[in-house]
Amino acid sequence: MAVYEDWSTERAAQVIAEHKHLDGATMPILHAMQETFGFVPDPVVPMIAETLNLSRAEVYGVLTFYHDFRREPPGRTVVKLCAAEACQSMGSTALTAYAEEKLGVSMGETSADGRVTLEPIYCLGLCACAPSALVDGQLVGRLDRATVDEIAECVAAGKHFGEV
């Protein structure tokens, strides 16, 4: 489980200051925001716009174009299951249905109790040991039901994946 900082305008301004010198700084700043707060809070948009001399619409446009950027906090554990062809050829579709059932959350959603977010990811480049997943930032290959059970146990126990 990733631990994020609480929102603060000062901290956000600091993150912007650390990256604003880069060529094409918008993306590096958005990534850094998400790393810091777990998502990109709305007040960040005008701050980036002002610093980089862009319109709010331009920054908002970038933020909403890319699948990675979140505008809401994620669940405490983020489970990304690969949904691309190589994983499908090894039964990822059925495994996804099983994970949805075990974790009690649908693909693309965060559970009501905020414990877990389940998302598709399109290819981790682990296509020769499919199906694969990214759980709490950890790569998992040769994913099977037993590993999904293990992930569900971690989520239920509030533990980092791999600790159980």
Partner: peptide
Amino acid sequence: MEMRMGAGAY
């Protein structure tokens, strides 16, 4: 050279 990270757009 520098590294830059994409953000999930194919």
